[in-house]
Nucleic acid binder design. Structure first.
Length: 140
DNA sequence: GCCAACGTTGGC
DNA sequence: GCCAACGTTGGC
C-alpha cells in the first residue's frame, strides 16, 4: 500500500526547477536533521508519491515527486544518524496550490502542513493527496 | 526582519 | 529525568 508525503524546500536552496533538471535519475534529499522527518523517510517505499512544496518564497505545492531510492545514509551528514531517500520529479502542478488555499480548504484542515508547519518531511493522506492534485490540475 | 513554535542541549 | 536556555524554521 503506497503512502503519500510532502517534501519541503526553500526554493533559494533547492527549487523545483533544480529537482526537475535531475530528471529520472532523481536526487538525494539531503540535509534533513530532524528525527521525525528522518523516520518518515525510512518509512517510504519505492514509487511512493509526494508533493514538492516551496517554503518561504512561493509557499505552494508546485510539483509531484516519487521515491526513486529507499532511505540510505545521508552523504551530506557527518554521522550515520541521518538518512535520506532519493526522489525524482514526476509532474508539474499546473496551478500551484498555495498555503493560503490549503488553510482555507476544510478538506485539508488536518494536514501536517497546517498544524506542524516546521516538519520538513511530512506524511500526507491519500484523500489529501487526491484533493490537492485535483485543485492543482494534476493529471497522473 | 520579527517572532512564535518547536526541537535539542546541557546543567542540575 | 526534568526543565530552562538556546538555535532553527518558516509564516507573516
Amino acid at each position: 500500500m503506497a503512502n503519500y508525503w510532502l517534501f519541503k524546500s526553500e526554493p533559494e536552496v533547492w527549487s523545483w526547477e533544480q529537482q526537475k533538471a535531475k530528471g529520472k535519475a532523481g536526487e538525494e534529499w539531503t540535509g534533513v536533521r530532524n528525527y521525525q522527518a528522518r523516520n518518515n523517510m525510512r518509512a517510504m517505499k519505492l514509487g511512493d508519491k509526494g508533493f514538492f512544496y516551496h517554503s518561504n518564497e512561493g509557499k505552494a505545492v508546485v510539483g509531484i515527486v516519487e521515491v526513486s531510492k529507499l532511505a540510505h545514509r545521508d552523504s551530506s551528514a557527518d554521522a550515520d544518524t541521518w538518512e535520506c531517500v532519493d526522489i525524482r520529479a514526476v509532474a508539474d502542478v499546473p496551478k500551484p496550490v498555495t498555503l493560503d488555499e490549503i488553510k482555507a480548504d476544510p478538506v485539508l484542515k488536518d494536514m501536517v502542513l497546517v498544524n506542524n508547519s516546521r516538519l520538513s518531511v511530512q506524511p500526507v493522506s491519500a484523500a489529501e493527496f487526491k484533493h490537492i492534485c485535483k485543485r492543482g490540475g494534476v493529471k497522473l
